[in-house]
Design a protein around this nucleic acid. Structure first.
Length: 288
DNA sequence: CTTCTTGTTACTGA
DNA sequence: ATCAGTAACAAGAA
């Protein structure tokens, strides 16, 4: 579920919470989340080090370590969560109590980072599709270069470049939006929402798109992602931010998950089909 | 019991 | 080479 806006929300929040704290200990509750990496090496690389920056490419989080030439990659895939907990939260003047709103660790906790000052970060992942991986800079650059296309909110994602991506392709626009190697970070929810805002049906082949539609799509991608970041992402099922709170964008969804309900724009019934292997939602009247 | 589920990749066959 | 469809990864919910 976490797509670009959710991952970006986590990135921004975590930067404020865990940057430059010493990692005292790593607890690995389920080594399947390391996807075959050596548990021993993983702990050695992290313990005693600090995160000095957190970046994002598409849906991938990149933690830069104080240890030379080491990066931690975290992909949440469908059900991964990164939740921060400050066990000893002391509030100045404080009679204030920390709300104990989530029990951690829980059944889905796979890795725990223990920092100085009793601060902790929990990696939870119900389905264990997500992963944590330590790489050097060259490996990181290779992974990013080979698997991640334009950053949709980046300055180099221009209308011209978008047109270049569309050129000579015969795939549907939805399949294109979901292809991380072309544009990185859009998943099922924001693909459907982008297409609704653009008035374009998901199954439209990109070589049939008119100039006006391409322009609209380009602007809609940026607009939807920016709005979703402002609302701290969408919680449909599993997603929570690094404080354990839900995202607010669900209130603004126009088509995703609204099959059988009335289109907010024209009143027609929102349809759900399977397209490009995914549940796909659209308004048959607003989208052509 | 069956079917479906947010991400991604590998594979098949056209 | 391109593209669509499906299974697989694993664990649920409905």
């Amino acid at each position: 579920m976490p797509e670009l806006p959710e991952v970006e929300t986590i990135r921004r929040d975590l930067k404020d919470k865990i940057l430059n704290l010493q990692i005292k200990e790593i607890l690995i509750l389920d080594n399947r989340s390391l996807k075959g990496e050596s548990v021993k090496k993983f702990k050695e690389d992290l313990e005693g080090s600090r995160f000095i920056d957190i970046e994002r490419r598409g849906k991938l989080l990149i933690f830069k370590l104080s240890k030379k030439d080491k990066f931690l990659l975290v992909h949440l895939k469908m059900t991964g969560q990164l939740i921060y907990k400050n066990k000893k939260q002391i509030i100045a003047g404080g009679h204030s109590e920390k709300k104990d709103d989530f029990n951690l660790p829980n059944n889905h906790t796979r890795v725990i980072f223990k920092f100085s000052k009793d601060k902790e970060l929990y990696f939870n992942d119900l389905r264990i599709f997500g992963y944590l991986k330590i790489v050097n800079e060259k490996q990181k650059d290779n992974i990013v270069d080979n698997n991640f296309g334009f950053e949709p909110l980046g300055a180099d994602f221009t209308l011209e470049n978008f047109k270049q991506i569309l050129k000579n392709r015969k795939i549907s626009i939805k399949a294109l939006l979901l292809n991380q190697k072309l544009i990185a970070g859009i998943g099922n929810i924001y693909a459907d929402e982008t297409l609704f805002l653009s008035g374009v049906r998901p199954a439209r082949r990109v070589d049939t798109l008119k100039e006006e539609e391409i322009k609209k799509l380009f602007l809609s991608i940026k607009k939807i992602l920016k709005q979703a970041i402002e609302k701290r992402g969408t919680t449909f099922n599993n997603y929570v931010d690094s404080s354990g709170n839900k995202g607010n964008f669900i209130k603004y969804l126009k088509v995703y998950g609204r099959q059988g309900q009335k289109c907010k724009k024209c009143g027609s019934e929102i349809k759900k089909i399977k397209h490009a292997g995914r549940g796909t939602h659209y308004c048959p009247d607003c989208q052509k």
